Simulated scan of single mutants.
Amino acid sequence: MPWPMVHFAIASEVSSNPSPEFLLGSLAPDSIHVRSNVRSEKAKTHLMIEEGRFATDEELRAFWESYKQQAERDPAFWQYLCGYIAHIYTDRVWTFDIYPAYEEHPEGRKRYTQEVTKMEFMILRNRSGARELLHRLDVAKAYDLGGLLEHEVVQYRKVKVDFLNNPAHEPAEDLSILSVDVLEHFIHTTAVRLKQMYTEWNVFEDLRSTTLS
């Protein structure tokens, strides 16, 4: 599954000015790692009914609807919820569209970890406004959601920001399986699909009316 900067890059294409809470929500499901690395626990925070089966668009919408009243009372939570769902949607697309190329490689898991780490720093260095997203992330409010506690999300945020702020963590090796063009295409098309899905749910119209009321 993609690492934070891919999620943040998608957030910045879903919205040209993503809110701090949308960004933090798009990081949040992986915050389970501060509590446990057990796959079944991660499956829960990623809304999998059973391990290995991603939530469908219909199930994601049901999750959205279950929190809609709370979201209508708190626009920041609304943004956080949108980011949370965006993370899960992105993971699902990535698993089917990007990860199979690594499964075919004899050292696929090792190469995958190396390349997704490399991608983090490439996005941070090369995409306009990417570092500003990290600064914006720092001021975001976290929420209890998806079985995760607010303090776990805050703790995970610090872990990832500290990691990204240390250039020594960037691998020296270049990408060999995933190309920059493929990565950028993934970011763009996934953002387009997310915007289409949110439009169908009337997310943007509802948020606009809530914010202005």
Rank of each mutant, 00 (worst) to 15 (best):
V154K: 14
P2C: 11
H135R: 09
Y102G: 03
V192F: 06
D57H: 08
H135G: 10
E41D: 15
M122S: 13
M5Q: 13
F96T: 11
V93W: 09
H105F: 05
L207E: 04
Q196S: 12
F186L: 10
L137C: 06
Y80R: 10
S12E: 03
S16W: 02
E65A: 07
R193S: 15
S36W: 12
R125N: 14
V180D: 06
Y102N: 02
V116E: 15
A142G: 12
F96V: 05
D74W: 04
E115I: 01
E150D: 13
V180T: 04
L212N: 11
V34T: 03
T56I: 03
S15K: 09
L145N: 09
Q196E: 15
R127F: 08
Y156N: 01
S36R: 12
R73K: 10
T90Q: 07
T190S: 10
E205N: 09
I187K: 06
G129N: 11
N17S: 13
L148S: 00
P4L: 13
D181A: 11
K118E: 11
P29L: 06
G25S: 07
N17A: 14
P75M: 00
E205C: 01
A71K: 07
T199W: 00
Y112T: 01
R131T: 08
H46Q: 05
H33N: 07
K160Y: 05
T95R: 10
Y99T: 09
L148E: 09
H46P: 05
E50P: 01
T56D: 10
L149N: 12
W201Y: 09
A11I: 00
L175W: 07
L194P: 07
L207K: 11
R53M: 10
H151M: 10
E150W: 03
D91F: 04
L24C: 07
H185V: 06
F121V: 02
R73P: 00
F204L: 07
V34A: 03
S128H: 08
P100E: 11
Q155N: 12
S19W: 09
T210L: 14
M197L: 15
K42L: 06
H7K: 13
D144G: 06
D74Y: 02
L207N: 03
L134F: 11
G146T: 02
F22M: 13
I85G: 04
T113C: 00
E65G: 05
T211V: 12
L183P: 04
S19P: 05
K158A: 14
Y99A: 09
D206P: 00
Y143A: 11
R61D: 01
I123E: 08
Q196K: 14
E50W: 00
H33L: 08
V154T: 10
M122Y: 12
I98F: 05
I187G: 08
L145I: 06
L149S: 15
A172M: 11
P171L: 00
H151P: 01
V14Q: 05
K44E: 14
T113A: 14
D138R: 09
S66K: 13
E200G: 06
K118N: 14
A142W: 07
